[in-house]
Design a binder for these strands. Sequence first.
DNA 1: TTTGATATTGAGACTAAATATCATATAAGG
DNA 2: CCTTATATGATATTTAGTCTCAATATCAAA
Lengths: 152, 152
Amino acid sequence: MILRIYRYKNGLEAFREFLIHNGMRVTPEREAILEEVFAEHEHFDVEGLIMRLRQKGKRSSRASVYRTLALLVESSLVQEVFYKDGHMHYEHIYGHEHHCHLRCLGCNKTIAILDEALADVIEGLGMEYNFEVISGRLEIFGFCPNCRDKNQ
Amino acid sequence: MILRIYRYKNGLEAFREFLIHNGMRVTPEREAILEEVFAEHEHFDVEGLIMRLRQKGKRSSRASVYRTLALLVESSLVQEVFYKDGHMHYEHIYGHEHHCHLRCLGCNKTIAILDEALADVIEGLGMEYNFEVISGRLEIFGFCPNCRDKNQ
DNA sequence: TTTGATATTGAGACTAAATATCATATAAGG
DNA sequence: CCTTATATGATATTTAGTCTCAATATCAAA
């Protein structure tokens, strides 16, 4: 459906290009949502995003937030991270595409890390399978030092 | 809550031990669901699992399927793979814990691969962060050779 | 084997995330 | 400016997943 991914200096510019090249319009709502998505660097969910938009006086409907988020995922500016507590959680990935999370099965704490070796593995697999790699994410599940001790 | 993960010769035995050691009961429903989960080696979703159970004359309620699946995820016999089309998709992982998927953003095809280097990265990160690693999964998003060409 | 405490099941009610609808508003090219 | 196709917002709708609770089954202990 929407096939091309564009790379520009920043997320806003990339998103504008993505919209225009796919015959869509640049609207204040879309720009406000994009801006807010990139304003924080933690995982977020739709409800939280709507709250933050409201607090800053940028109003957009729930429907528009969902619609714009779908576009951001499609353009690979944002990725779905995990589904938890009955809804999806996201993170923006423009500029730092390869993410890795350590998730503790005991306390549910998530640690985000960036690993060079992981990037190499991803690039290598891309080459091997002739894939044009856009982004990658590694989830490791296990027990953090704390919970491991409690377990014992 | 449920903390220990047990490793046994096969999934059924592991699940039995998991249940018993956590004060839960071994029931025909749970065993039938587990068996069906391990009967196929593709990704599956709840609806498909229920269909397959019905076709084989093993009846269990929708609620029990959801409940048992949650236990299987908790015991790391099964993992959530991705959320798509409005619901979660799963795969069993007992015996082959480290999985990697290449997912094409164009045609949605998913290729499952097993990579030694990935296993090393996961083990290495576990050591580094003092995590007791139970399982890991790597999702790589990009364009397969076909869709890359169409794009061009 | 029988009993009893307690965990599990199943049917369906319920919740809420996400989508669809459609009248109104707006972007953007002419 | 106009024009027209696209986007928005309010709300209805859908449906994945959870909850409830009476009936049933497990399993340890008598």
